[in-house]
């Protein structure tokens, strides 16, 4: 182990804003987002890349931020759940569909689910129920509330844009 913790300056574009920070090389991206930047919408569920609660978009694709180092994201562009609205309180399209279909119970998995739904709809704008379930395989709902999540995504199918 190095005698002193190795730190790095990182610059990451997060939700359209340039953010900088000094992190240890071992700092996980999810901890950088939550603890250093206060973006606590991204949750830590399992911390073992199983549950998907920490899902964010790095350079346009959904990844589990508990399994990425902050230093590895240096120079990248990241969207978190906070980046889906413009601050006006207006929900994004996916969030609105979740609201309309009661696609959340305790809500803990919801930010990750929403980010994964965006990823799914980008790849397949008109998914079948089976494709929705397959596309959300990386997200676990501890309340087992999958039924309404699938309904919410079905309501978005073939509507077009993802945002």
């Amino acid at each position: 182990m190095p005698a002193t913790a190795s730190t790095r300056e990182v610059t990451i574009e997060i939700n359209g804003l340039r953010r900088t920070g000094t992190v240890e090389a071992r700092r996980l991206l999810v901890h950088f987002l939550r603890e250093d930047l206060g973006l606590t919408g991204t949750h830590v569920g399992c911390d073992t890349s199983q549950c998907g609660a920490c899902t964010v978009e790095i350079d346009g694709v959904a990844v589990k931020s508990c399994t990425v180092l902050a230093v590895m994201a240096d120079g990248a562009s990241i969207t978190t759940i906070e980046g889906l609205t413009d601050g006006s309180g207006e929900l994004s399209r996916v969030q609105k569909a979740f609201h309309d279909h009661h696609a959340l119970q305790c809500g803990f998995c919801t930010p990750g689910m929403v980010m994964s739904v965006r990823n799914l709809l980008r790849e397949n704008p008109n998914p079948s129920e089976r494709e929705i379930r397959h596309g959300l395989a990386g997200n676990i709902c501890r309340c087992t509330g999958y039924h309404n999540i699938v309904r919410a995504v079905e309501s978005l199918a073939s509507e077009g844009s993802v945002a």
Partner: peptide, 12 residues
């Protein structure tokens, strides 16, 4: 690839 892990893991 479809049978491997899950979408987020496959992305990385």
């Amino acid at each position: 690839a479809r049978l491997l892990a899950d979408p987020q893991v496959r992305n990385r």
